[in-house]
Design a binder for these strands. Structure first.
Lengths: 329, 329
DNA sequence: CTGAAAGCGCTTACAG
DNA sequence: CTGAAAGCGCTTACAG
């Protein structure tokens, strides 16, 4: 049997007769042979690896998404080469390592890409998709939820619930996600003639969120509702309010988060939150990256923002008349 | 400049003069050149990729470990090729894909490897290290905590705390981790003349844990303490006891978990738990895999079991006299 | 359908 | 220190 015959039996759709195919397979089994994907990558110039860069894996929102993404990719015949970014650190170093491995594309989970780096990827024809984050200046594709609409939903919900002093706990100031959610909140409040009462920055960490909550409530006119940029932080805010500040939730103060992580549904928290369509977002990210790989980089950037729903649980006082579109759990 | 010159400037420790080295670097910068790791892998027969297989990423214990592992690997010049296993599903399919990518080694997070598969890896000279799990029959290296000692610690602690009816919520029956923790518990209780009062299986899931708790407490003689095989499940058990069964913790019943996940420290839970030395465990896993890669597979399997500490918080009634070695938080 | 040959981008003896 | 040459394990026109 020739090398070509072997190659063809392992290439779906190649022209081999059943006879040689069977012979090759038989020999492969006997010898424990399986094709070398590295050598294949070299000649096809397709590694079938996607570089995935993740920040904030301690945020419970991401692990499941990463798993979904990885499995979806695998189903499409792609594999995940995983990298972590220190929160806020530049992705430069990591990006160059990824590029050396000839990944076919890059998906970034809530990590930021400078436009320089975006250019590097573009020059190499490597498509990049941002997940749960967008960039204004660079021509990069992204998929996120409609964060402004989500914030607006919360603003309207809290206003309708009769809250008067509504505060926001931001994630990181330069995070598009946090900014958009805040902008939506402000817009939602404006519809009822309210302005944002106070704000603090939680930096997407538990400790940061605790400190942010503390700072919000040491003012003479503390908030009667807090919208927190992520559930991860909202859990810490909730605990701080209840156990450190001895406040009653939602009687003294309402708390609303974003992401609808499974733990928010736990009886201990019952967190009202904005739910992103996680599976659809992952599916979109995969679709975007694969279509761009196929097109060889000549497809323009595309920004996908999927609709969200408000999940109403017990951590926030509810409007007298529910006017939806809310999901009550 | 020759191809060799270029290769040598990018090979640390190769013999190039400063002059040519500078010239190559300059040209590389101008052309945007960087070495092709795939081609290098083919010739050196070292991909510098480690296949990492993860099960149970929804258990909050794992994401941080995965991050630590990946970063440690990266610092050593290795990269993480990530794969997920459906809980309980065979790793077969996934393993063959990993092998095709010519990974230099495989680390499995709480996933089980059949001895057949272990043989396949051994035959190809690919070292495998199991993390947070061990296998009896196969000659595979593993790193875990001393789960028996951990269980024993809990058994003694609960017995000393005056509990009389102590139950265990297992993870998955064939998980070495769960089995060892249970065995330790039984031994620890035996020291005080107690036997295990009841047991149920939680399957390492939130829902499974809830059901397990419910089943334990519908008996006529419900437990006065529950040791749960993982914090992930313990959180669900705690919530079920408090909010569904209206029990007071720790007055009516004590709960102890294992893993000491960050969230267990939250004021809402204050979970007493067994803490594994996470960073050391990761460091050991990396050490094991790298040493085996270097040795070309002729090093025998090694099993590392690191010592644990009991972290005492509010979810379990404490002995009148603390006799350590406990950490009180 | 099948095989021989070229070539993907590297590293590494080898000779100078 | 340096370059020419061979070769890692594949895929893919090309000719038959």
């Amino acid at each position: 049997m020739s090398q070509s015959a072997v190659s063809r039996t392992f290439t779906p759709g190649a022209s081999v007769s059943e006879a040689t195919r069977a012979k090759v397979l038989e020999a492969a089994r006997a010898l424990g042979y399986s094709p070398n994907a590295i050598a294949r990558s070299l000649i096809t110039r397709r590694s079938r690896m996607i570089g995935v860069i993740v920040a904030y894996l301690d945020n419970h929102y991401y692990p499941l998404l990463l798993e979904t993404l990885s499995q979806r990719l695998q189903r499409e015949g792609y594999h995940t080469l995983l990298f972590f970014t220190q929160t806020g650190a530049p992705v430069d170093a990591v990006l160059h390592e990824i590029l050396q491995y000839q990944v076919d594309g890059i998906i970034m989970f809530s990590a930021v890409l400078s436009s320089d780096l975006a250019d590097v990827c573009a020059a190499q024809g490597i498509p990049v998709v941002l997940f749960n984050r967008t960039v204004d200046d660079a021509a990069v594709s992204s998929v996120s939820s409609d964060n402004v609409a989500g914030g607006r939903l919360v603003g309207r919900f809290l206003a309708a619930g009769g809250h008067a002093r509504i505060a926001y706990v931001a994630g990181v100031e330069d995070s598009s996600t946090s900014r958009d959610r805040e902008r939506g909140l402000v817009e939602g409040l404006a519809g009822s003639g309210l302005a944002l009462h106070a704000r603090a920055v939680g930096g997407y960490t538990l400790d940061g969120a605790r400190l942010a909550a503390l700072s919000l409530f040491e003012r003479p006119d503390p908030p009667d509702a807090v919208f927190v940029a992520s559930d991860h932080m909202a859990l810490a805010v909730l605990d701080t309010l209840r156990f450190e500040l001895r406040l009653s939730v939602p009687d003294d103060v309402s708390v609303v988060g974003y992401d609808a992580i499974p733990l928010g549904a736990a009886p201990s928290y019952r967190l009202t939150s904005v739910r992103q369509p996680n599976d659809e977002m992952v599916a979109e990210a995969v679709r975007l990256i694969l279509s761009r790989i196929g097109a060889g980089g000549d497809t323009g950037p595309e920004r996908v923002a999927l609709p969200v729903r408000l999940v109403v649980r017990g951590s926030a006082r509810r409007p007298a008349t529910d006017e939806g579109p809310y999901d009550t759990e």
